[in-house]
Write a protein that binds this DNA or RNA. Structure first.
Lengths: 246, 246
DNA sequence: TAATTTATATTTGTAAGACAAATTAACTTA
DNA sequence: TAAGTTAATTTGTCTTACAAATATAAATTA
């Protein structure tokens, strides 16, 4: 005599309910700006307590799938996806990879080189006059003697973002933004002591000229120089830190 | 007589606590596998009720930053989200944007071609025997006559993810996963009627061979063929749909 | 009558207390 | 010593109550 044994479901109630609601959102059953049933209604429908529903909703809120509001016209609403939010999520996830040391610096630098080379190549093809003006403007900002290190870093980021924008492909630009942001902690670390602004500015000037002249190969070569320079500076910073710890 | 007015903090307690704990995880104060204080301890420390703590922890759990376990050696432990988990967290946002046509499909396809060409080139250099075996295995799965359309799509995704992994760069793999996932609604849409499996399988076989032989240019050419094929199939699906609506 | 203030109803946010479920270590029994 | 039982701990769920925020309707004032 035998009977079948099936795996039992060990997931918590709140995670099961969150998964179901997520599926309803992703498969289009629940649409952007739709109002979910109230917490009380959901707890009746699922035959669970209200705190369990709230826990499930917090799981969805953490993924930006829903937002809540109090009051007679309040409730829990499916969030409308936006391009800005996707960009933020991508950036936040990339930053986490770095913070949690899931990826090492060589990997990020290599990825940056690949991605930004692609952006440079496309930028050399697609750049507009206003993007060139914007690059020129940032170069002027960077050469100003009064600029603080902080503002120099900010201008550096903007310079590279303009290049990403000039690729003419928004998805690529988002990906590029994410990688640039993920590198910010490192950039901040070497900003004060280990990075010669004049070298960076020179790279930027030559990069701008190459893009202006639509010379993709030259642009990629200059970019490679800059990324290698920055990687070496960072290695110096690490060595200096290691030496200091002795 | 005047006094300063500062913005008041409108965030809920549970989201503030989740943010603080997330920061502690990301800045390295809390490391992977560290055990957080018990729910009771956290509620005493933060001077809030235990359900509020639980809601905060559910927010972190949804981001794969913690996991919980019952029992005397249980508790809430810090986890390190994997590249796959982090990119999965982008899936919902990206998927919805593509479904709602908030982003231009041509842009995503163009970005995919650039990114995946880079991954193919690196995969041709860096692929391991086990990655080749995994690709071979997926090809076998795909050629099985009994496979459902759903399972074929899943295998297709895995095939491309293996290529991203074979690039040997986790940051690149991360962004590649995100782009692949964003295209899933489109792939699902054309899966049943507009996509010849034999064509896809042929592309995959040739891609595998090119990577095996470490011929990066050939791999990139085949990939271009596949992406163009899929874009055309999708255009056919849209046309067919437009015609059907008349 | 128009503008302002107050009251009411609704929904989410938080708290307190109780009990259940899962798990591990310690203890007991064979 | 191995197997079984028990106790303790922590998370998971439930019940009940009240607070906070909000929008609308009603009441009051000018």
């Amino acid at each position: 005599m035998s009977f079948e044994v099936e795996p039992v479901n060990r997931s918590s109630l709140s995670s099961q309910i969150a998964d179901q609601l997520q599926e309803a959102i992703l498969d289009g059953t629940l649409k952007a700006d739709d109002r979910l049933p109230t917490e009380d209604e959901l707890s009746k429908r699922y035959q669970v307590s209200r705190p369990t529903i709230r826990e499930a909703l917090k799981r969805l809120a953490a993924k930006n799938l829903v937002r809540s509001k109090r009051g007679p016209t309040g409730g829990t609403f499916v969030t409308k996806p936006s391009v800005a939010q996707l960009s933020d999520s991508l950036t936040s996830a990339a930053t986490m990879l770095v913070s949690l040391k899931e990826v090492d610096l060589d990997e990020i630098n290599a990825a940056r080189l690949e991605l930004e080379s692609t952006c440079c190549r496309l930028a050399a093809q697609h750049r507009s006059e206003s993007q060139l003006s914007a690059l020129i403007h940032e170069l002027e900002v960077q050469t100003d003697e009064r600029i603080t290190a902080e503002d120099f870093c900010a201008s550096d980021v903007r310079f590279h973002r303009i290049i990403a924008d000039a690729s003419g492909n928004r998805m690529l630009a988002f990906v590029m933004y994410a990688v640039i942001e993920a590198l910010q902690p490192v950039a901040n670390m070497i900003a004060y002591r280990f990075r010669e602004r004049t070298v960076i500015i020179d790279h930027h000037r030559r990069l701008l000229e190459a893009i202006q002249q639509q010379d993709a190969d030259l642009a990629c070569g200059i970019l490679k120089e800059q990324i290698e320079y920055l990687a070496a500076r960072h290695q110096d910073a690490q060595d200096w830190r290691a030496g200091k710890a002795d």
